[in-house]
Design a protein around this nucleic acid. Sequence first.
DNA 1: TCGTTGTCATCAATCGATTGCAATATACCC
DNA 2: GGGTATATTGCAATCGATTGATGACAACGA
Lengths: 342, 342
Amino acid sequence: MANKVTLKQIAQEVGLSPSSVSLVLNNRPCRISEENRKLIKEVAARNHYVPNQIARSLVMRESRTLGLIVPNIESRFFASLAGSLEKRCREDGYALFITSSGGSADDDLELLRQLVTRGVDGVFLVVGDEFSDDRALREEVSHLPIPAVMVDRAIEGLECDKVMFDHEMGGYMVTRYLIEQGHRRIACLVNARRSNTGRKRLAGYERALREVGLPIDARLEFESEYYIPSAYEASEAVLATDATAVFASSDNIALGLLKRLHEMGKSIPGDISVVSYDNSAADVLFEPALTAIEQDPGVLAEHAFGCMSKRLAGRGGRRAEEVVLEPALIVKGSVLELTECS
Amino acid sequence: MANKVTLKQIAQEVGLSPSSVSLVLNNRPCRISEENRKLIKEVAARNHYVPNQIARSLVMRESRTLGLIVPNIESRFFASLAGSLEKRCREDGYALFITSSGGSADDDLELLRQLVTRGVDGVFLVVGDEFSDDRALREEVSHLPIPAVMVDRAIEGLECDKVMFDHEMGGYMVTRYLIEQGHRRIACLVNARRSNTGRKRLAGYERALREVGLPIDARLEFESEYYIPSAYEASEAVLATDATAVFASSDNIALGLLKRLHEMGKSIPGDISVVSYDNSAADVLFEPALTAIEQDPGVLAEHAFGCMSKRLAGRGGRRAEEVVLEPALIVKGSVLELTECS
DNA sequence: TCGTTGTCATCAATCGATTGCAATATACCC
DNA sequence: GGGTATATTGCAATCGATTGATGACAACGA
């Protein structure tokens, strides 16, 4: 294990003061003879000098590091978001500190504090979807000494930059599309009990029905957590209805549903049409491919970074910015067009 | 945005010196009257004082932060590893700085430097599987001023703690099992060209064949990258052979293979037996479930943290520690037992 | 009254960088 | 030689915490 080389050591070896070395290595405008400049750079390189960011952060009051808190890094969507965001940050010379909380507001709070004391210049928060007690978290976020951007979801009623896809619109688009394809009995499988996003998607679903005068039938609305087994369980009841189509409000929910369909020997879209939300890696396998709402994590990352960037540059307005992105319905082959006669 | 509160401010408000405040808040053994102790703690709490880790790291020369570099956080296996490792670190009061490199040695190097200058106390490296030019990286790793643990894979010939599953053994176990089930013509689909782990799995496959006197037939060995489309492409040729079983050396490779099988209307294990490596989330869908080698990322994380922990405590030996874990073959239903007559 | 002991708290250096201001040296002009 | 530019470089404070060494003060015994 090699020792770390410090500015002072370089200075000593060159025979100049630490100040001069610092000035030269940071390309600060200053009058140091060309000769010594060369010398300093050479010695620094030879000794593999790397400035200590810790020390630098302390005096500069910025670390060029950002933080990200996601509920669960093992979920494909968040992993992808984290990946995109990291790449984007790196492009601008920021490192991204990725952390995964487990989804409880307490853990979120703990991580947030960790990030702040570790000197990140800003945080991206993917928090607030679960209905846990988040008073302490809201409190903390609203008193943060650094900029924060809430991504994909938000703590309701908190003044803070937000970037997210329109979940209500997503639910609406799916349902509207199914209606246009001639479906009238449309079931949905959503996580409305424990998730804000789920609740919004459900609202969109209902709006679409209402809009065309179709009844909102509680017997067609089913509840499922965002896990495959949960959806699998719930699916039996869904398939016992007379629905001709199902709106699965997340990729995992769709997977659970498909598993059940497969077991029952039902075919898509022949026996029943399915629309999913977010594409899972597994989707490549299905024949036909799943029609689904797509929320590109890369787009989310791009906008989130944009907001952050503005704040960091001090260009953010006093009021919080809210970016709402429209999701896209990607039509593939899992929806049957019902003709009038059917 | 609230201001950050410093030790000095607290001290001022209490009317004592910063030293005293520091001493008390860190529960250092010192003689400060019970009365003042109470006061200090109360004022600190009231002001939401949180010590600045940056400043603390500088003088303490430790940050209680560890770093992790994975090739691609969007891959399920790495995401899961990152998740487990983070949880484990947190249990011991360490934060984990997760970064994702993209897999090139250059990026790995860049990230490694970033982590080091940002003062992490140690790094977990999941690097070195791709055959890129890694001289600079080896150089850097071998001169690191902090402990490093290579996880899941390694830069060959580098003296450094290592924790990984035995990939050769995995390939061997799969093949051995297939042989025991009566298979004689066993194809394999591996990433041997660009991956060390793939190469090892192939070696295990060949060892098993050799051991029982079966021929190693180059016409049964197929190459695929670790991506679904790549495996999908390669699968056609695999299925054109007379193999009764296929060893798919990664989850993505298995998915690509399955897609092709599905399209060709072939059934598992009736038409052909399949063994996979690592379970993918998508596996739940298949009927029958896939027999596969399982490498629990949690176990990997646990051991990796163990090594790190020892080093950090100064209890590591001078020589590098090497932990080789035996993978498990989880038998499900994708392999047909061939009877003698077949 | 002096010395001793014990209690409680502070001083000042340190970590490794950054940076405004001051200082030195050399050249140039009258 | 005195005065002024100009070119180079160094000093010392600073960021916010930690910590070994040291100081102040009271009580007590001789």
